[in-house]
Design a protein around this nucleic acid. Structure first.
Length: 238
DNA sequence: AATTACTCCAACCGCTATTAC
DNA sequence: AGTAATAGCGGTTGGAGTAAT
């Protein structure tokens, strides 16, 4: 591997926390070579680090416009809502929060939000993980889902593989995955966007079932189904 | 004051996707 | 078209700091 080759040259490969001096070296090198070609940067900079390590340090700490400090309430809400939508797609979520890194959001989720949500989900002891997203449903739900279904594949096995059956299952009317406070909030939020709750369903054709919803009547003028691929326009700050 | 338990976060690891040749 | 190199992503870990006992 080229990364290893770069690291092997000279002394032993350095790992662990970065020194200020290393940071400065890296910043200088990125200014010189750009923030691509990390292997070359690692070699040229004289840092005894892998390109991968340099890239990570740059993205998570050194690049301009990094926002440090407490995640605001507003940011927290966005994280929660986007996590409801996309699951653990930290990089996607981070793109909607300028200055925040995927690593930071991931850590924040694990240390703050997951716990918080779990305590609020107390009476939702069963959950279905659809394409890595956690959807909770109440005990006694009239739907026939079993508690130990863990992923999309098992769901697919359960309901069969036809698209129509899947679509049907994910419609709120037939599968009440919007029961918890957060699902409710998400639902409200989606409703605001779509203006028509009854038409919301997860769309199956968006790169593996996990990245978008579709809304009929999003644009009531033509009545077509509009696919919100990752809701890109909502938070695009660029 | 010393020890243990817990929290948080930076950094690493392994894997997949994309790009270059 | 096939292969290797590189970039990117998400999960996990280790250690520093803090709280609890």
């Amino acid at each position: 591997m080229a990364y290893q080759a770069a690291a092997i040259q000279g002394d032993k490969l350095r790992k662990g926390p970065w020194l200020e001096e290393e940071d400065q070296q890296l910043v200088t090198s990125v200014k010189l070579f750009g923030d691509r070609k990390w292997d070359s940067i690692a070699t040229a900079s004289g840092l005894n680090r892998t390109g991968k390590s340099c890239r990570l340090r740059w993205l998570n700490y050194l690049r301009p416009n990094i926002k440090r400090g407490q995640i605001s309430d507003e940011e927290e809400q966005i994280i929660i809502q986007l996590h409801e939508l996309w699951g653990n797609k930290w990089a996607n979520i981070a793109r909607r929060l300028p200055g925040r890194t995927d690593n930071e959001i991931k850590n924040y989720w694990r240390t703050h939000l997951r716990k918080k949500l779990q305590s609020q989900e107390g009476n939702f002891h069963c959950k279905v993980n659809i394409a890595k997203q956690d959807f909770f449903y109440q005990e006694g739900d009239t739907s026939s889902w079993n508690c130990n279904m863990k992923d999309y594949n098992s769901i697919e096995n359960k309901v069969g593989t036809t698209e129509s059956s899947l679509d049907q299952c994910y419609e709120p009317s037939s599968f009440t995955y919007l029961n918890s406070p957060y699902e409710t909030r998400l639902y409200d939020w989606m409703s605001e966007l779509s203006g028509d709750q009854s038409e919301m369903k997860i769309h199956r054709d968006c790169g593996g079932f996990d990245s978008c919803f579709s809304y009929q009547k999003w644009n009531s003028e033509d009545g077509d189904t509009i696919i919100l691929d990752s809701l890109g326009s909502l938070w695009d700050m660029n």
